[in-house]
Amino acid sequence: SLIGGSGTGTCMCPTTERDLADGIGPAVALQNEGSPLSLGSDSHAVIDLFEEARAMELNERLRTRTRGHWTAAALLRAASADGHAALGWADAGALEPGALADFTTIALDSVRTAGPLPRLGAETAVFAASAADVSHTVVAGRHVVRDGTHSLVPDVPRALADALAVLRG
């Protein structure tokens, strides 16, 4: 699914493309025309930016039968700084003075993430981690998820089920 942003670029949601059987999105063509790559999720089934990043590269591997279309660092940038830019949030997407302090950390001791060398952190995040590996999330400098527990919503599954029930009527 392609989502237009209020900033620059087009947001790619490759898992939605896959789910809807729409095919592989035109990320390479858009990027070749100068559009920044940004990743998001508009899925009703899975919201996992690690999976979106992984899907970008793996989809292109399937299409072209070659590897190495994007580096793990470029895919993480598409899911963070470039995604913020696509939303028009110039003060986000980087850890530096004056920027919003939005970031997520992942556990490096799960069955998916244990073992790689620390210098392979980006590759571990993109090609192994999932949303289940998120250990901390900080938004505007405030901890929202600490040690895997949401601090603002005590029962996330129940809150999601309740919200969906309201939407269904």
Rank of each mutant, 00 (worst) to 15 (best):
S1H: 15
L2P: 02
G5I: 10
S6N: 11
S6R: 15
G7Y: 05
C11Y: 00
M12I: 08
C13E: 07
T15E: 09
T16W: 03
E17C: 13
R18F: 14
R18G: 09
D19M: 06
D19F: 07
D22R: 08
S35F: 13
P36Y: 07
P36C: 10
P36G: 09
L37H: 05
L37D: 04
S43L: 07
A45P: 00
D48Y: 05
R54P: 03
E60N: 14
W70D: 01
W70N: 02
T71S: 15
A73Y: 07
A73H: 14
A74R: 15
A74V: 03
A79C: 12
S80V: 04
D82I: 03
D82L: 14
G83W: 02
L87N: 09
G88K: 09
A92R: 11
A92C: 11
E96H: 07
L100Q: 10
A101K: 06
D102Y: 03
F103G: 03
T104M: 13
T105L: 12
A107H: 08
L108Y: 00
A114I: 14
G115C: 13
L117R: 15
L117G: 07
L117M: 14
P118H: 10
R119A: 15
L120V: 00
G121L: 11
E123W: 00
T124M: 06
F127V: 05
S130L: 01
S130C: 04
S130F: 00
A131T: 05
A132Y: 01
D133R: 01
V134S: 02
S135I: 04
H136L: 01
V138R: 02
V139Y: 02
V139M: 07
V139E: 02
H143P: 05
V145N: 04
R146G: 02
V153T: 15
A159T: 05
D162N: 09
D162P: 01
D162A: 15
L164R: 15
L167N: 07
